[in-house]
């Protein structure tokens, strides 16, 4: 086997490859349809919007990797509450951006602690605990903001929508965040503990890993990233709204699964999140460009996602 072939063969084993391949083909189909028009602009848009799915996707991926039953359903509510609270406190003043960011992250940390308290102290399964806490925090956001959409400070709006040679700055930061979180996942004691617990929590416990603390840290991490996402998304879309998080409940789980991370836990990869986020955006764009009706678009979205997961899943079961 030649070195190139060997590299190609190793690459094919990567579970995240399929998400990128799917994103590429969907993009190709779109620009073939438009005769090459807007090829770069579509990619720019995909990077800009994919960013938000990736930020929450990282947190969701860590949680799902903890093993069966672990999922964070409070992400949309956390985003909404963090976005509403930070926008209200900043009140469009540039000088308050840092404080606004701290508020958004603080909301995230609090939600994470609350979630884990429900799971640990009250022994509520994570799916129920995070769902019920999402009601609490969504209601808090409604009561706090009363549907008021406050504009972000100009500098924050500028920063979240700025781009360098067609690449959104936010996307660059999120790639850096993804790299850091990949290193944390694979090279640190904490990251490896997450994977170990996902593979077998009892064995992980016997080998000296603090299972409780690792799970606690992971739920806090997920909620904190949701808070961060709520903050930057509010800046990007001109303010926080009560339903801004809604689509990220499914999106955060979808990018994890399509990205090749095992739903059963214990195996995770970060690059796939980016591939899947781009794929999800480009898929909707492609179907919109084809001008198909909403019904057909939804059916196609479902079918294409099933095929990609089947392809990606088929490769990872051998491990």
């Amino acid at each position: 086997m030649t070195p190139t072939l060997r590299i190609a063969a190793r690459l094919l084993e990567k579970p995240w490859l399929w998400a990128f391949a799917a994103a590429f083909f969907v993009w190709l189909a779109t620009i073939v349809f438009t005769g090459g028009q807007g090829a770069a602009a579509v990619l720019t848009a995909a990077l800009a919007f994919g960013t938000f799915s990736v930020i929450v996707g990282i947190g969701q991926m860590y949680v799902i990797t903890l093993g069966p039953g672990n999922v964070d359903l409070s992400i949309p509510a956390t985003m909404t509450f963090a976005g509403a609270a930070s926008m209200k406190i900043m009140d469009t003043q540039d000088s308050m951006i840092f404080i606004g960011l701290l508020v958004a992250l603080g909301v995230g940390v609090s939600v994470g602690i609350f979630n884990y308290a429900l799971i640990r102290l009250l022994r509520i399964p994570p799916i129920i605990a995070t769902l019920s806490s999402s009601f609490v925090f969504q209601s808090a956001a409604i009561a706090y903001g009363r549907g008021i959409k406050i504009k972000p400070p100009p500098v924050l709006a500028e920063f979240t929508t700025a781009r360098i040679v067609g690449i959104p700055i936010l996307a660059i930061f999120t790639v850096i965040l993804a790299v850091i979180m990949a290193v944390v996942l694979h090279k640190t004691v904490y990251g490896r503990s997450v994977i170990a617990i996902g593979q077998n929590p009892r064995a992980a416990g016997f080998s000296g890993i603090s299972v409780g603390f690792t799970r606690f840290a992971t739920y806090v991490l997920s909620a904190t990233l949701a808070g961060l996402c709520g903050f930057v998304l509010s800046g990007f879309s001109g303010g926080a709204s009560l339903n801004m998080g809604a689509e990220f409940l499914l999106a955060s789980i979808a990018v994890v699964v399509i990205g090749g991370t095992s739903v059963a836990g214990g195996f995770a990869n970060i690059p796939g999140l980016w591939g899947a986020a781009l794929f999800m955006f480009l898929l909707v764009t492609m179907l919109n460009t084809f001008g198909l009706g909403a019904g057909i678009r939804l059916i196609m979205t479902g079918l294409i996602i099933i095929s990609v997961i089947t392809l990606a899943g088929g490769k990872s079961t051998g491990r």
Partner: peptide
Amino acid sequence: QDVAQKAVAGILPS
């Protein structure tokens, strides 16, 4: 607004 922004940004180039 955010969903509309996303959908329009996607289709606009074409």
